[in-house]
Design a protein around this nucleic acid. Structure first.
Lengths: 217, 217
DNA sequence: TAGTTATGAATGAACG
DNA sequence: CGTTCATTCATAACTA
């Protein structure tokens, strides 16, 4: 097993907390916001460095390249400021059944894109049924509209589908591209020993998976 | 100093601790020693990768080839398939980390909308780091400005009820954070306090993401 | 518990 | 410029 030794004592900085989980007792570490913040910064720095290096590397080594090398759009963590606490524990909003129902209803009324004011109202109403923000509402409508439209296209395109599926989602109206995510690798969360750019790229993908921009709170 | 060795691979799954707070559910993360260890490994891997990249870079710094090997984003010429069938492989530009950094830096200097001339210069500079066009630069600034104009924060529960509150993302921004001097990173051995709440969990390919909402209320 | 699908969110580009 | 669209990424939810 890989093992790491640190000469630091962060270990001691973490609080041990006793937890009962039904199956017994277990001790877990709880971190302070400050600690979390530090960690995040550290990681962000590493990620950036890696990205830069890879980039540099790519520029140096010619480019017989990977047309689809999606490598990432990595972005430094914004390092949220303020000592306050913010440990958000939310990954992403998930509408409750009620909220969804309401949203769908509104959507069907076809009033197009809700105005800002409208969104505010909707948000207010939905907040009665669970956590939600205006942004969530906005995004929801954006996605709903976009996907509803796309669906039609797909339906139209899927008139003949038989033996060959490599043809499935061809043009129709969007001469668009065939996904060429050649490098869409499975997260490579393991060894780190590569000999060539390609491998690094892969690793980096895992490293810099996120690209959340952010600056602005 | 930090030392790394390994022979296996990790897996990190933090325990989700579900908490109901009236308005919804929230997941809180707590860590076990094992998980902590995993995190350390992750970071160690990061460090290791950086080292390797640096080495590699040293070995390649021989021939500067700045042809901008940014691949995936450039418009692949419409390729002609066997039958003369044209498949446009258009793909939108995706700034590389380096480009982003530069752009952000310039943006921060607050010189407002770059003049045409300025854009040309920027484009030239950025082209050293990958495929890019003046239009890309222009759009980027347009979007950046528009989106930063946000003010968000209003969020959800306008009048939340019952003790449960909207956990907004209030964070405000700091006009200038983010490690830019990326190349002088803190040493890997420097203590790092672990873990970010939930985000990192999922992003464990991390880059701890800060959240960001582009939409302005 | 791994693979798939549905969908929230991020963002380059385009529109009026 | 402010908004909106289109596309893609990441992940919650689902399924085998």
């Amino acid at each position: 097993m890989m093992r790491i030794e640190w000469d630091g004592q962060q270990e001691n900085q973490l609080q041990n907390q006793r937890e009962e989980n039904g199956n017994g007792v277990m001790y877990v570490k709880v971190m302070t916001d400050e600690q979390l913040e530090t960690l995040r910064k550290q990681i962000a720095v590493y990620a950036s460095i890696c990205e830069q290096l890879v980039d540099m590397h790519k520029n140096l080594t010619a480019h017989q390249d990977l047309t689809g090398g999606r490598l990432g759009n990595l972005y430094c963590d914004p390092l949220m400021t303020s000592g306050g606490h913010k440990i958000s524990a939310r990954q992403r909003w998930t509408p409750t059944a009620v909220q969804l129902q309401i949203l769908e209803r509104i959507f069907e009324e076809g009033t197009g894109t809700p105005s800002k004011q409208k969104i505010k109202e909707i948000t207010t109403e939905l907040s009665q049924h669970g956590q939600i923000s205006e942004t969530n509402v906005y995004n929801w409508f954006q996605n709903r509209r976009a996907r509803s439209k796309r669906k039609q296209v797909v339906v139209a395109a899927t008139s003949n589908k038989n033996g060959a599926e490599s043809e499935v989602e061809t043009e129709v109206e969007s001469p668009k591209t065939k996904p060429e995510n050649l490098l869409l690798l499975p997260q490579a969360q393991q060894a780190v020993c590569f000999q060539n750019p390609a491998e690094i790229t892969s690793q980096l993908h895992f490293l810099g998976g996120g690209y959340h921009h952010a600056w602005q709170g």
